[in-house]
């Protein structure tokens, strides 16, 4: 069963997108990315110091991979710096795709919803395809769609926390209310089953980094997430049975030996 999907203006097969940070070595990073089957990989920008080789070891490995780059604006706390970082990323990475991060709180790395909408509006007018890293707030989602976002990336829980989907109802509500939007759960996933859960809700994809990179065996964990995402997607497409309050025997009772009607 083919299940390719349209992400922005591009056809992709994998519904798992992963980050390239936190790996113990470039070799492990490359191996994990390949094992994940991901076709979209997040990248970032760092300050260049005098005489430093621009071709950092991680980037020199990354740029050989046949994937789509999704640059982020990590570390930006204001609209202006996020917009400028986005413009620099577009030139360096040669893509108009952008994972827009406007952080509002240092402890939780919670996105600033007001700055996020303002920056998204500016960048979409400037030709960017904005992938907004957002909380799971319904009204924020509507504001982002209003300014032209075709993709929404609600967090499951705070970045790097590994807590999984803290408010499943919010993710389900976003799916129900924005059926045409590409809904990608980003941040906070810890276990492969968290990714399965997101996909069972009907999300179009998941984006994660720490859950794979911080595993003692990132390559094996990347494979686990790849299968978990596929399982969740397949389950969603097949249709999940409704829950019942009490038991309902699955084995037919007709002809059961020693069976008798309970009075």
């Amino acid at each position: 069963m083919t299940d390719s999907w349209r992400l922005a203006d591009t056809q992709v097969s994998s519904r798992l997108m992963i980050g390239s940070a936190l790996y113990p070595s470039p070799e492990v990073m490359q191996s994990a990315i390949e094992a994940s089957g991901a076709e979209v990989v997040t990248v970032s920008l760092r300050r260049q110091t005098a005489g430093q080789n621009t071709d950092s070891s991680y980037w020199s490995w990354l740029k050989q991979l046949p994937v789509h780059w999704l640059p982020n604006t990590a570390g930006c706390y204001g609209v202006r710096e996020a917009v400028t970082t986005a413009q620099m990323a577009r030139e360096v990475f040669g893509t108009h795709w952008l994972k827009l991060e406007v952080i509002g709180d240092e402890q939780t790395l919670q996105p600033d919803p007001f700055g996020l909408v303002e920056a998204a509006d500016i960048l979409i007018r400037d030709g960017f395809e904005v992938f907004p890293y957002m909380t799971d707030d319904l009204v924020l989602a509507q504001r982002l769609v209003d300014v032209g976002c075709r993709i929404l990336m609600p967090w499951a829980s705070p970045i790097g926390s590994g807590q999984g989907i803290r408010h499943p109802q919010n993710i389900m509500l976003l799916r129900e209310r924005f059926p045409q939007v590409q809904l990608i759960v980003d941040a906070g996933l810890g276990r492969p089953s968290d990714a399965t859960e997101a996909m069972e809700f009907g999300c179009d994809g998941v984006l994660l980094n720490s859950a794979i990179a911080l595993s003692p065996d990132p390559t094996r964990m990347a494979g686990a997430f790849e299968q978990a995402v596929s399982a969740g997607r397949l389950g969603y497409r097949a249709g999940i049975m409704p829950q019942r309050q009490w038991a309902s025997a699955s084995t037919p009772t007709i002809g059961t030996p020693f069976w008798h009607q309970v009075p």
Binding site: G19, V43, A74
Partner: peptide, 25 residues
Amino acid sequence: PRSRWANHFLQPGDQVEIVAPMQGG
């Protein structure tokens, strides 16, 4: 933009950011 570097003259006190690619989440 790169296309304007050759004609952009820096002024005293300018704050310049030069960035390069790296891994990210």
